[in-house]
Design a protein around this nucleic acid. Structure first.
Lengths: 226, 226
DNA sequence: GTATGATTCATACGAACGTTTGAATGAAGA
DNA sequence: TCTTCATTCAAACGTTCGTATGAATCATAC
């Protein structure tokens, strides 16, 4: 990979994360990378090709790591269902670690991902999702065997809640103090918070919340104070 | 409010939700609303003004309802900390109800909100956040009194996890079967799932997940199968 | 009927965009 | 040294964008 090609990827990652994808022009990117405007079209065929290359560069290693972790845990468990914490660790730890390893670039990329994730109707979204077909299949299976009393629908829902929390963390990490990691503290604090939250949420018993009762209570407490 | 003005708001809501804000042009909006291109600038002063008007029309009622609910629950509790389910119901139920009441338009608006929420660096985001200052303050206070053993940072984090799950639900509602509500089932199923998940997550004890131990287990299970 | 003010209309403007082109440049092999 | 091929470059293309303009249209009050 030539210098220019890599500098373009790095600059695109940074600027997409800072301003958004649609809001970042090829002129912004090439200027930031100190390359010619035509370089993007020469190396990647266009803006979409550049996004694709961005995905391929980062998703591959992270998702490989996730599957490797899940495989390892499952092999060690010899058939018994995995503790939720291990499943969630296998899902959450790789992207967190990658962010640490890549520094600012990693944070930037993850925020790009969070943006795309929140935009299911964008043109790039189908391509984006294809990188996660196997991930989703494998983790759903692991969760199903660890949570036999939960319906498939509910498992899928709660798995997505966890994904959402992770994405939110990446997306707001630089804007909210509660997600910023204190340098004096161990780096894994946010990760453990996320795993604890998601594990507790996954373990929640279904049917414990009676929305109708809450709705009834609502009409009692609001009608007297119109 | 004139017909044209309202039709513009409706069309903008729909198209912003479908394609994204940056990806939707004023020409798209005015064509969909069967209005003249110049109508947006005449009625709202520009694209930004239109977005502002969109926020004002929807956020006001929803947030009023949230505070009214929280006030009612707190008044009924006479000083004792609220059950988490009541706090979460007060936070989640109003937008869900609004979506039901508004039909497709409501779903559209909530997806617009989810998009903006996932984009903390957009120009509109500051304006967007100002609508939630009081909401955040009040709900943080309620959670703090119901979860005295949790640090402020951790409460803030977990509150955001819940928000993220809600946003994800709105954002992916039309793209994932698990969030689509079966018409034959009571409409509150997703809402109760969300409340159960978030309540369990909020109640999770801190420090139960040892990331270091998981990391150690990881190196054991992965090093033998290189 | 006519005057007035609000609204709608067709049209145009300048800027910014992604993309294309063809020449210039540079390093490597014959 | 000359050739070759990948890369870089400045410049331009056509499109689409948000915005502005001034005339046309409409409703309403006098």
């Amino acid at each position: 990979m030539t210098d220019t090609k890599m500098r373009l990827l790095d600059s695109a990652e940074t600027l997409f994360a800072e301003r958004g994808i649609a809001e970042t022009s090829l002129r912004d990117i090439t200027a930031h990378a100190e390359a010619n405007l035509a370089a993007v079209n020469y190396h990647f065929g266009g803006k979409d090709g550049l996004l694709e290359a961005l995905f391929a560069r980062r998703f591959g290693p992270v998702n490989e790591e996730r599957l490797l972790l899940l495989d390892g845990f499952e092999a060690a468990a010899t058939g018994t269902p995995l503790p939720l914490e291990q499943i969630l660790y296998a899902n959450f730890a790789p992207p967190f670690r990658r962010i640490d390893a890549l520094g600012d670039a990693g944070q930037a990329f993850m925020r790009v991902v969070a943006r795309i994730n929140a935009d299911p109707s964008s043109s790039i979204h189908q391509t984006f999702l294809r990188h996660f077909d196997e991930i989703r299949r494998r983790f759903h299976a692991a969760l199903r065997s660890s949570l036999p009393e939960l319906s498939t629908t509910e498992i899928e829902r709660r798995f997505h809640y966890g994904i959402a929390a992770m994405m939110h963390t990446f997306c707001w990490g630089q804007h909210l103090d509660c997600f910023r990691i204190d340098p004096t503290e161990p780096r894994e604090r946010v990760l453990s918070s996320l795993i604890e939250y998601a594990a507790a949420g996954l373990r929640a018993a279904r049917g414990t919340v009676d929305v109708e009762a809450l709705s009834e209570l609502e009409s009692q407490v609001t009608e007297v104070t119109p």
